[in-house]
Amino acid sequence: EVTIKANLIFANGSTQTAEFKGTFEKATSEAYAYADTLKKDNGEYTVDVADKGYTLNIKFAG
């Protein structure tokens, strides 16, 4: 089991951190699915992958 950390960075400057656990593939998939649910209210997003994929910096356009 691994932990994927998602740093969520919103257009208004606020930030939030979420963690997803499971296999690497499952946790990564859940992180992207979570970002997709936030897209409606926060706009499109870009992802900067860090720490060999264990950290995702997800920035929303607003």
Rank of each mutant, 00 (worst) to 15 (best):
E19L: 12
A33S: 13
E19N: 15
N42A: 08
D51A: 07
T46N: 09
A61H: 12
F60E: 01
G13L: 08
L8P: 00
E19Y: 08
T3L: 09
D48R: 09
F20C: 02
N42E: 10
L8F: 06
G22W: 01
N12T: 08
D41Q: 15
F20D: 00
A27H: 00
F24T: 08
K39I: 13
K52F: 15
Y54E: 04
D48V: 14
E30F: 08
E19S: 13
G53P: 06
A11R: 10
T17L: 15
K26I: 15
V47R: 02
T15Q: 09
L38E: 03
E30L: 07
V49I: 06
Q16T: 13
A27T: 03
I4A: 01
F60W: 11
T55S: 13
K5D: 03
T23H: 10
A6I: 10
Q16K: 15
A35C: 04
K40F: 10
E44R: 06
Y45V: 02
K59H: 11
T46A: 12
A50G: 10
T46G: 12
A50L: 14
L8Y: 11
N42D: 09
K40H: 10
T23W: 06
T46Y: 06
K21G: 06
K59A: 08
G22E: 04
E19M: 08
K59E: 04
V49Y: 12
E44D: 13
L8K: 00
A61W: 05
T3I: 10
A27P: 01
G22D: 04
K40L: 09
G43S: 04
A50P: 05
A11G: 06
T28G: 02
D41F: 08
G62V: 11
A11Q: 13
A50Q: 05
A11E: 14
V47A: 10
Y54D: 04
L8R: 00
T46V: 10
L38D: 01
G62I: 04
L38F: 15
I58Q: 00
L8N: 02
V47F: 14
K40S: 09
L56W: 06
E25Y: 06
I9D: 05
N12M: 06
A31M: 08
G22S: 09
N57P: 00
E1M: 15
D41L: 15
K26P: 02
E25T: 10
E25M: 13
K59S: 08
T23R: 13
F10Q: 04
I58G: 00
E44M: 06
I9F: 11
D48H: 15
S29M: 15
G62C: 03
S14C: 05
V2H: 05
T46K: 06
A6G: 12
S29V: 07
A18C: 03
A50C: 04
A50Y: 05
Y32H: 13
A50S: 11
T28Q: 14
K40M: 12
Y34R: 06
K26E: 12
L8E: 00
K59P: 01
I4D: 00
K39W: 07
A33N: 13
Q16H: 11
T3H: 08
K59Q: 12
S29K: 13
N7P: 01
T3S: 13
A35Y: 02
F60T: 00
T15A: 06
V2Q: 13
A27Y: 00
A27E: 01
D48L: 07
